[in-house]
Design a protein around this nucleic acid. Sequence first.
DNA 1: CATAAACATTGATCTAGATCAAAATCGATC
DNA 2: GATCGATTTTGATCTAGATCAATGTTTATG
Lengths: 188, 188
Amino acid sequence: MTNKLKTVLQTLADFDERELDQIVNLFKPKSVKKNSILLHEGNISREFYYIHTGGLRTFFISKNGQEKTRYVMLDNHIGTALKSFISQKPSIEFVEAIDDTELLAISHQDFYHLNEEIHSWKNFYQNILERAYSFQNRKIEELVTLTAKQRYEQLLQENPVFIQKLSNKVLASYLDMREETLSRLKSQ
Amino acid sequence: MTNKLKTVLQTLADFDERELDQIVNLFKPKSVKKNSILLHEGNISREFYYIHTGGLRTFFISKNGQEKTRYVMLDNHIGTALKSFISQKPSIEFVEAIDDTELLAISHQDFYHLNEEIHSWKNFYQNILERAYSFQNRKIEELVTLTAKQRYEQLLQENPVFIQKLSNKVLASYLDMREETLSRLKSQ
DNA sequence: CATAAACATTGATCTAGATCAAAATCGATC
DNA sequence: GATCGATTTTGATCTAGATCAATGTTTATG
């Protein structure tokens, strides 16, 4: 499990073997059941995750009670409720397991501590932030230029695994449409 | 003009006086006329701006030819077409002066060079990225949870200067609605 | 200053996707 | 494996905001 994590870390910054060992030792294994909540709205996001198997999603609940999925992490991906993790202020987002999940978690404290201990960790974090920014940049473009159908078809092309692994309910909220609309799009 | 820039820089990271001098010397003054294009779609974003007076916006053009304003910088704010600036790949965004504008610009080369020369510059850049991420995070929340009217009213409350300084055309595209819709909301 | 071009307003109509409602299917638990 | 709750599908209707169109109003340019 930690070997795969090392590979992922190396794609994001230039660590030597000793540094990688030091880093992955700070990632603690965790098993969570489907539908369990790892972070509840109002609490501070204090962990950063690497997903070994299964998956997590972050979502928030709108004024009129609808769940809005912001981000999905599947096998071999990393992430967390980033806004609260950055600011260490209460999160408006939940983090939830969308499946039985095996993951590795590093605490916020250890994460920031690595900034001082390992020079490349700053580059790693910078890289995470740049990617998170670009991801959202694209999401905004999609929201303001594409129809529901186009958003669905683009995901089908670029990330079909999402459509296999997510429930319609979650997938619809990720694509910013109602379940009924997604159901109709699928049956075309 | 450079003194105000120093103040802004200091709110974002911890620089000493010597470092500030070194930094602001890399920012070159520029005067641009209203409606002039500082960055054209397809070109690489090679400058980062501090706006002294006037304002810039970034926008892109959708498949069906509509302008979509992503980001607006007014007096004493900083920014650029960030995605292309980060990746140094061709931009899908334009940068345009929304008014006659006096600004200071630092080149991408100098900007990244400062990463090696001034330790706190990494923190500065990290801070910029965190803010850019959070800004977009919020924008997505607004797009998926608020009505056109609510988005307009929120901006009226939080940033009325935008409503004074932007043309209806630009403001409407910033709020993701048509000019006609904005016009109707304003006259209520 | 005149004239064209860009921008803003107002009204009428249209439509993508939401909402409401009910039936059908799936899946966890005893 | 029967049962209850959650999820998905299907149909009917509604609506926020887009689109289309015409007119009024600023603003740039020779």
